[in-house]
């Protein structure tokens, strides 16, 4: 038990007491692991050096456990558990590489790869190899009829997939402003952008998940273009997007022109010049030109977040008039 500090005494510590966390012992793939109470299975796996693939998880956001890629098998449980959110319990016996786990992960990757454009999703190719995925077995990709009517969805109804095809979320890229594009054909619905725009970071609530089932999608109200929405162009949604569905216009244009080359890019950390908060600004420079800006996830001030100025207001460096929303 920790006792409360006596605030009247001059020796009272200024910081609140750190609650003691008991250690919990469990086994992961047969190895005994001790982690603090309240840890997740993913924390435990990470501390034990056991790799677990994740897509919808980000340590600065609340876990939504939607992608189900990080599932593990807990002995005695009827179904697999999402390691990103399931808390450890003493005596748990966890398997991260059992046939059931491998099957579920393979299918999650196959189902995603057969319905979403994963060409700009980091790490996914290596996972697909590791789990032996063959997404093409579901049929030739065809855009689903559901997605033609996103501005006026009809939940509970769908148009049947064209014969022999595998429905995808393919759709035109939404380019409605100069700062970033939304290519929802690449969206795996990880909810990260919605969380970053909403209660976890920005509290702007410009976007939400709308529709349901396979037609569920990220949208503004009535699917209005971003400039008509509550968006403040902080770009914090881009920073958390794992698939490149949300992308700087500058990066999108370079990719379209075939000139995007991360190998040639330099990354430079500096401090944002605009105000006194002192956000670390990470500039991505290709051929002497800033191509995008980010902030490190582990930065104590930003947690990876920036505002519109830090995120997009660097064109002046190149002598061009700043583009504003």
């Amino acid at each position: 038990m920790t006792s409360l500090p006596d605030l009247a005494s001059p020796q009272a510590p200024l910081s609140p007491p750190v609650p003691l966390r008991r250690a919990v012992e469990l086994t992961i793939d047969g190895r005994t692991v001790r982690v603090p109470e309240g840890s997740t299975l993913l924390d435990a796996c990470t501390s034990a050096g056991v790799p677990v693939p994740t897509l919808c998880f980000l340590r600065t956001l609340h876990p939504v456990n939607a992608c189900r890629l990080c599932v593990v098998e807990v002995e005695g449980a009827r179904v697999l558990a999402p390691s990103c959110s399931r808390q450890v319990e003493a005596g748990m016996a966890v398997h991260t590489n059992s046939p059931r786990v491998r099957h579920a992960r393979r299918l999650v990757l196959e189902l995603l790869a057969s319905s979403v454009d994963l060409s700009t999703t980091a790490e996914v190719d290596a996972w697909m190899d590791e789990y032996g995925c063959e997404p093409e077995r579901f049929g030739a990709p065809v855009p689903a009829g559901d997605h033609e009517h996103r501005a006026s969805p009809r939940p509970g109804h769908h148009a049947p997939t064209a014969p022999g095809g595998a429905a995808t979320v393919e759709q035109p890229v939404a380019i409605d402003n100069d700062l970033y594009v939304r290519d929802y054909g690449k969206c795996i619905l990880c909810y990260k952008c919605v969380e970053a725009c909403g209660p976890d970071h920005q509290n702007t609530f410009a976007i939400a998940v709308a529709g349901r089932g396979f037609a569920a999608h990220v949208a503004t109200e009535f699917d209005v273009p971003l400039p008509d929405s509550a968006c403040v162009y902080c770009g914090n949604c881009i920073a958390v997007c794992p698939t490149g569905a949300l992308m700087f216009k500058s990066e999108f244009d370079l990719r379209e022109a075939g000139r995007w080359d991360e190998e040639r890019q330099q990354v430079t950390d500096t401090i944002c010049p605009y105000c006194g908060v002192g956000c670390t600004l990470r500039l991505h420079v290709q051929d002497g030109e800033i191509v995008k800006a980010s902030s490190p996830l582990d930065h104590a001030v930003t947690l990876g977040n920036l505002c519109v100025k830090g995120r997009f207001g660097w064109r002046f460096v190149h002598g061009a008039p700043a583009d504003g929303p």
Binding site: A66, L69, L107, V108, L189, F214, A215
Partner: peptide, 9 residues
């Protein structure tokens, strides 16, 4: 039709 659409499987 009735899947909420939250999880991939």
């Amino acid at each position: 039709d009735e899947s909420c659409g939250q999880c991939v499987p």
